[in-house]
Design a protein around this nucleic acid. Structure first.
Lengths: 356, 356
DNA sequence: TTGTAGGCGTTATCAC
DNA sequence: GTGATAACGCCTACAA
């Protein structure tokens, strides 16, 4: 039987507490607590009675009270720069599988690519006393102060995809630089392209910088010159890709590129639109490669060659890393930068018929 | 200066409390609390001193302790049946804008379309003492007992997209039935199709049933017979759509449909693959319409005509509704079923060239 | 095996 | 304007 109370006129069931169970059974709250938590030193019969009463009374342990006394919330926070990009929901899915298995709750926050909102999100998570934080940097973040403060406070912190380096935090990502280089080399070696453009992400964000560096590595390894006019600033979305591509297409036609490497798939998809508007044929006139393996990539016309970034696995790995940090299970191989393997998915936008 | 303590060998900053600030300033914790929370009855000078000390000491209010006293967590929980479908991340994005504005935290849980995991998720959220729950039913849920229990306990509960009716809970969704009927009529009226198939979602889920009912309404309104053989059970994903379509294509060719209405876009995308494998031309031989407006819809070949389901807005509306329920701002127009407007997005898979 | 005392960090309440 | 006390629900430590 649940005690009833009023709340603005609505009848609301008051929550059952350990104390309620104890009273009903003529026990102390400690015995009930022990029984409920499957601890030793409780008579078998007592335990049964407690469990049954708890079930009957609809008892739900109060995590809040428990957290307060244990200084442990079994909760982790995640800070995402955006939701719209397919990559992040997939990361969440990966994170969630791990948190679910390990009995952690997941608090989701969103920086909307804004440095100040990112700081606010982190502080709220601190207030919520999460046991650890998973974060992917906002595009506009340039100052690592908040991160270092968090680190100093002892709060476990793991970056994924867009990492802050040099502050001693773990990072889970793909090898953006090396994979980008391979993408460039594919464009050059296999297809003999000679003027490769790059739709460059913000270099303040690790993936923006790394993919740009990989682009330069690829050119250099093949004796191709780096040309300023073939590199155009893009954001991480379709619009940015479209505009960056358009800017390059302002060049006289004889200086147009014959290949494009976009910082990610949304940008590549925007760029494809720009190329089509300019009347260029893909891949005959120009090849294009993206990064992410967006669900739309197989459906673009022609299908987009891209780097598969295993978002689900990145999420899983980051969450595992974070929880092992929380549990202080730091193994001997205590690497701080975890690289998840990525693959070049060859479709037809680079010129390979039938994906080979 | 932060007191330091050891945790498994790592130096960890001990958190600053109201009491710490009070001691440092020679005040009582109540005065500090008042100053921090911008309450009256604090001297202006005292307030300044407190705020500055808090800043200097890196104070972060402990929401856990606060929640315990106030019996209010400023946290809401969301239970999603899946993450992979584009629709749900968009809903989250909508929810997040509202929760962020209203100062609520968002706890994310995942039922993975499984009724038991759904129950577990709900119970965990109860344990976390969230102020309210947002939920979209799992595919395998058939028993509403847990929902009614929640309702009875006084926990505000709002369904979105996949609703449980008849239990007095609010529901935010599009008018699935009526919009489906319009989609069917479009196929019939505009394109003169006469044998419309339906890839039917699980009818235990509201959207599955409603879209199926709308399909039947559309046939009936146009004097077309309902034919068992043209209705095939699908799940909500690509594989389900592919298989359901394949099953229909087992019919002798002269009984093949000339139109298909799929329960959602992923199913439609799977169906398109099946149709192509069978050598059917879209839209010449058969027209197809989906539901969702998945980001891939404009990119299928031909572009998929679909119903735009405003996921972001659904999320926003559901969250607003929930929070107004929490705050007991029940207005006079206290509707329990909120219908968000949806549009038929006409592309070419139904036969309309250039989207008109 | 079971119970008692005390405290986690905060705020409501009532006193000064 | 400020402070002392108690309470939120649970658990640790110690006592019986």
């Amino acid at each position: 039987m649940i005690a009833l109370t009023e709340r603005n006129g609505a009848v609301v069931g008051k929550r059952v507490t350990v104390e309620d169970i104890a009273q009903k059974l003529g026990l102390s709250s400690m015995t009930v607590s022990r029984a409920l938590n499957d601890r030793p030193n409780v008579g078998e019969e007592t335990r049964e009675r407690v469990l049954q009463a708890a079930r009957e009374m609809g008892y739900r342990p109060n995590r809040i009270a428990k957290s307060l006394v244990l200084s442990k919330t079994y909760t982790i926070g995640i800070v995402l720069p955006k939701m719209a990009h397919f990559f992040f929901p997939e990361v969440i899915r990966g994170v969630e599988t791990v948190t679910h298995d390990k009995g952690y709750q997941l608090i989701l926050t969103h920086s909307a690519e804004d440095a100040e909102r990112e700081i606010a999100a982190i502080q709220t998570l601190e207030s919520s006393r999460v046991d650890g934080i998973l974060i992917s940097m906002a595009q506009s973040t340039s100052n690592y102060e908040e991160y270092t403060q968090i680190m100093k406070s002892g709060m476990p912190l793991v970056f994924f995809d867009r990492c802050a380096f040099g502050i001693g935090a773990s990072c889970v990502s793909v090898d953006d630089r090396d994979t980008s280089r391979r993408a460039i080399e594919h464009l050059i070696d296999v297809h003999g392209r000679k003027r490769i453009a790059h739709l460059k992400g913000p270099v303040s964000v690790s993936v923006g910088k790394d993919r740009f560096d990989g682009y330069k590595d690829g050119l250099e390894a093949n004796g191709l010159p780096y040309e300023e006019e073939l590199v155009s600033d893009s954001s991480f979305n379709e619009k940015g890709g479209y505009e960056a591509m358009m800017k390059i297409l302002q060049l006289p036609k004889d200086r147009w590129p014959d290949g494009v490497f976009a910082v990610n798939d949304p940008a590549a998809i925007g760029a494809i639109e720009a190329l089509k508007e300019a009347g260029l044929r893909i891949p005959e006139d120009i090849g294009i490669i993206g990064f992410t393996d967006d669900p739309r990539a197989p459906l673009t016309n022609p299908p987009l060659t891209t780097v598969r970034q295993p978002a689900f696995e990145i999420g899983k790995t980051a969450a595992q890393r974070l929880i092992s940090l929380i549990d202080e299970e730091r193994e001997v191989d205590d690497v701080d930068e975890i690289v998840v393997k990525s693959d070049l998915i060859i479709r037809n936008s680079c010129g390979c018929q039938n994906g080979k």
